[in-house]
Each structure stands twice: as C-alpha cells, then as structure tokens.
Design a protein around this nucleic acid. Sequence first.
DNA 1: CCAACACATAAGCCAATACTTATGAGTCGC
DNA 2: GCGACTCATAAGTATTGGCTTATGTGTTGG
Lengths: 103, 103
Amino acid sequence: MEADIFKALADPNRRAMLERLASGELTGSALGEGFAISQPAMSQHIAVLRGAGLIRERREGRSVHYAVNPDGMAPLHDWLSRYQAFWPERLGRLKDFLKEMDQ
Amino acid sequence: MEADIFKALADPNRRAMLERLASGELTGSALGEGFAISQPAMSQHIAVLRGAGLIRERREGRSVHYAVNPDGMAPLHDWLSRYQAFWPERLGRLKDFLKEMDQ
DNA sequence: CCAACACATAAGCCAATACTTATGAGTCGC
DNA sequence: GCGACTCATAAGTATTGGCTTATGTGTTGG
C-alpha cells in the first residue's frame, strides 16, 4: 500500500497529474492536455495512481471523470508524521495555521 | 529537490533505513545490519538519501555517523499540505494532538 | 449499423536504477 | 608501517519502469 503510494509519487508526470486534479475533477482527455505524452502513457499513469488509491474514477458515458481520492494520501501523511519530532518549528507554523482556521 | 525526495523514498530499503535512523544516529555498519544487501549497496543508498537532503553525516574516526536531517522532509510536507483540503477529519485529529502537546 | 470518440490493454523498446564483485582511500591498533 | 577495519567508488549486469505503436472494448451520434 504505502509502497505503492511512494512509487506512484516518484514520477513527475504523475505528480503533475495529481496537482491538476487537486483543482477539481477532470476527464481523461482533459487531464491529458498539456502533457507531452501519448494517450496510452496517460492511461498507464492513471492506472498506477488508481492502484495506489490516490484517485477515484466515475464513468459517465464514454468518458471517465477522475478526481483525487479524499484519503488516498492518508498513509503517506501517517508515515511522514513519524518524522514530525524532527521539525518542531514547522509544528509551530502549523499550529498558527490551525488557529487561523478556527476563526 | 522535491523530485529527489520522492525518488529517494520510492525505494523500500531506503525507507527502512530512514525509519531505523529515526530512532537515533547510527554508523554505516550498524545501519547496515539486518539488511540483506551488500555494503556498497548500502553506501549507494546512503548517497541517494544524502543527495535528497534527508540525512546528515558526521565523520568520527574511520566510521561515519548518519542521522535524519531535521528538516529534510519539509518539502515533502509542504507538497503534501496541498492535499490537506481533502482530509478535514485528519486535521481535526492533528489539532487534538497539538492541543495535547501544549500541556 | 457504422464511423468517430474515449479510454484500456498488449507488446516491444530504451533508459534508469538497484544490485553485484573488485578495488580505492582514509583510519586505527599493534 | 602493516594488517584490519569502515566506508566510497568503479564497472558490469539484470531488472524495473516509462514510453511508443498497434489494437481492443465500450459509447455515442447520424
């Protein structure tokens, strides 16, 4: 699981795809625009991201709408939290951020 | 930078090494114990982790002590925070954690 | 129906990478 | 100084991974 996530994120194209999806749901062809790779390459990347649980898909007619999976990054976050002890100053900044959010 | 981190973390052996180092500083040979790979392989993995800024080293005599770099994971954390909007419930748990820390 | 469309799968190719053995460079104890 | 020790580097090999072209599967509109 965790390993699949790290592997999926190791590729810059896949990270870029995720970042585009972070702005909202997109169909496969819409997501592919701006990438200098073929449609099959995109499809394969999507398969990897889905295999890692990072995206969800919703078929609608002949197109498929992809979106970021709400808690797909959770295992990564959990893994990363093991190292929070190493950056107390960042915790402070995060605290400020959360305080702001409360208002 | 960011790309180097993701690439470094894509390998399970390197992640395991980091997790061992999270418990505290270790020399190269001590870090290598329990891994079924050769010493040069370990050394190469270490070079990748250092290249990604994830570990620091301290020479002491003929051995080298490796440790997690305090803010090496910061770029990863920053990247990940872009997706925090997708897990509000996790933010809640984190808030509780920080509140506990204050006491 | 049938042609165009949207996406997935197959198969092959090439580059990146993780591993090996062999060796190098520096340090320590005797 | 010399052998043992710790780690790094070199060079070669085998696997992995991302890309391509070609093709398959399902959907839609005329």
